[in-house]
Each structure stands twice: as C-alpha cells, then as structure tokens.
Design a protein around this nucleic acid. Structure first.
Lengths: 171, 171
DNA sequence: GCGTTATAGTTACATATGAAACCATTTGCA
DNA sequence: TGCAAATGGTTTCATATGTAACTATAACGC
C-alpha cells in the first residue's frame, strides 16, 4: 500500500501536485507523442528526431543555410550542425556553398532524402491524427487556439523594448 | 530573403508544416515552459529537473521506495537512482532501508530538503501561473480537460485486452 | 528447505546534448 | 584600405540520458 499524501500532515509545506502541474503534464504528453512517432522511423531509417526535423524543414524550404534551419526547427546551431553532418554523410542532404558568402551552406534534400521523407511524413501525420482522434472537434479547435496563444509572443515584457535572448529556445 | 515554400513546386511530396504539427508544437511549448522554471532553481540550488521532480514527489509522499518514486514521476528507475544518489549526497534526502524487505529504500526529504522545496515550489507555481495567464478562463478549462483526455488511457486498443509495455513512458 | 524466477536498485557503456572555444569569412566603419 | 566586431559553422569538452548487464534480496513452486 503506497504512502498517503502528507498534505494534511504538513500544511506549511504546500507540496506540488505533480500530476496536476501544467509543465509536468506537458512534458509527459510531449515525450509520449514524440516517442511514438520516433519509434516509427528511428530504427527503420537510422534517423534521429533532430535529423528528421531538419529534413522536414528542408522539404519545405530548399536552399536554406544551417542557421536558417536552426531558426525554423527551434534547435540550436550545434544540434543542426551535427544532424547535417550525419545527413550529408548518409547522402540524404546535399550541401553546397553560398555564392557571395562562403561561410553559408546551401542545403537541400537529395533524391534519397526525398525517398525517406516521403515515407516518414505520412507516418508522422498518421500518428498526429491518432492523437487528435482522442479529442472531439471542439476540443481540437480549442487546443489549436490555445497552443497558438501559448506559443505566441514569448512573454509580453512589462514595457515596450523587444527583449533579447528569449527567442533562443523558441526562435 | 529566405527561400520560399516548395509546396507548390513539388505537390507530390506533401512536406510537413512543422509549425502546425502538433507533436512539434508540444515539444517547443514543453521545453520552453520547463526551461523557464528550471532556470529559476538550477543554478541557484545546483538542482536538476529530475532531482526536483523526485523532491516534489517526496514532499507529498513520505517513505516511498525508489521504484514508487519512479512510477510517480514517470521517470525510469536509472534516472531516479542517479537523482537520489545526488540528493542523498547533498543531504537533501534521507534514505533508509525497508524493514522486512532489505531491497527497498525508504525515502524522505531531510530538513535541508524541505528548505529547498519550500523555496522552489512557490517559484514553480508562479511560473505556471504566468503561463496560464496568457489564457482566459475558458481556455484554461479546456486545456485542463484536453490534457486529461490526451494523457488518459494510452490508446484504446482495438479490443479489450489491457496492453502491456505502453506505460513504460508514462507510467 | 531449495532451486528458479522476479524484483529493487546500481553500475557500465555507449550515445546525445549544450556551452564555450574555435576557424573562416564577411561586415562596419574610421 | 585596414582592422575590430559580427556571423556561419564546426569542434571540444563536460554532462546527461537510455539500455543492458549486474548484485542483492525476496517470492514461488515443489
């Protein structure tokens, strides 16, 4: 028999109820969902989540630089650099050099990359549908709206200055 | 000027729109929120997220075993073991041995542990409030309801058998 | 009782991740 | 021009995390 809550016992300590705590619940949900999808392709294509995200972005926007990929995936540039190294190595991404700025790379999916993409993207979408199927139409609409709000402007700073640094995580 | 979407270009490939993709959005949101909270205590108390979660559970349920902590935090037992090693080392958690079952440990917060808890818990709650403040009352209610549904039964299997293995991630 | 199997917890190894240092190139501007 | 500062990208190092193997104890079947 599991121990019982001590709330009453130590009213002065006001412990968190983890299972009702928003950040905790989000974390569990996010991990569960992402893991379910990753399980579909990870072993099959030897593809990590970060690599897949890079591919997904390059599928929509050809010719991006690594930095632009980082912005659009909300990953930091080190993670992107590593993912790209593996993807290029595996022949899934073509990497050229920007004319006029030799620092920048110019990235796109290769044929092999597209083949992987065209298998993984539908699987990912199917998983998303599975998750959403647990909700009715109303709930789906609210969820979308809520996420828009929560993900929107990082946090309205007291006054007007555009705050710096905060976008590093979300970008 | 950033490249433009290739959707029209390659209608056959149907790329994912990452920024509308539920798993992706959840991941960003979860990371952003958790990170904001962690920033509050990580450096200040040299406390990791997993350690904090263990502490939060022990604050509510005294005398749990490591396995029970793992269940309640949805972390795996290795992570819990490591977190506990550090917490005990730091004098924040007391670890005894269960009478009648010498395999089990009996865990509780020490005085020092409670002191940390009593600073961190209110900070965590305050951050949660900040996030929720972006939503109006309706939206907050829907969010709670939606999370309940999404986090509920892992996934209704076609028929009735209780499926095994799925709880490993959520527990 | 006694061997087999299950359970609590830790350790070892391999991989992933983040921060900071590091090149190379480009930009800003005196 | 020419040099300091900024930018794109990679590498290094330290830390985190997951899987599997391992130890110790307990439970089960006979």
């Amino acid at each position: 028999m599991p121990a019982e809550p001590q709330d009453a016992h130590r009213p002065d300590h006001a412990p968190l109820e983890l299972e009702r705590f928003l950040p905790y619940r989000l974390s569990i949900l996010s991990n569960t969902v992402s893991q379910a999808i990753a399980d579909d392709y990870q072993a099959r294509f030897d593809l990590s989540v970060t690599e897949w995200r890079v591919m997904a972005v390059l599928a929509r926007f050809e010719g991006l630089s690594a930095r632009e990929v980082a912005e659009r995936t909300a990953m930091d540039k080190v993670a992107v650099s590593r993912a790209l190294a593996r993807l290029v190595e595996a022949g899934r991404v073509n990497r050229g050099t920007h004319e006029g700025d030799k620092r920048r790379s110019v990235l796109s999916l290769s044929e092999a990359g597209w083949e992987v993409h065209d298998v993984v993207a539908p699987m990912a979408r199917a998983r998303e549908r599975e998750v959403l199927a647990k909700l009715d139409a109303d709930e789906q609409a609210w969820l979308s709206r809520i996420l828009d709000k929560l993900l929107g402007p990082p946090v309205p700073p007291r006054s007007g200055q555009p705050q710096s640094g905060a976008e590093a995580t979300v970008a």
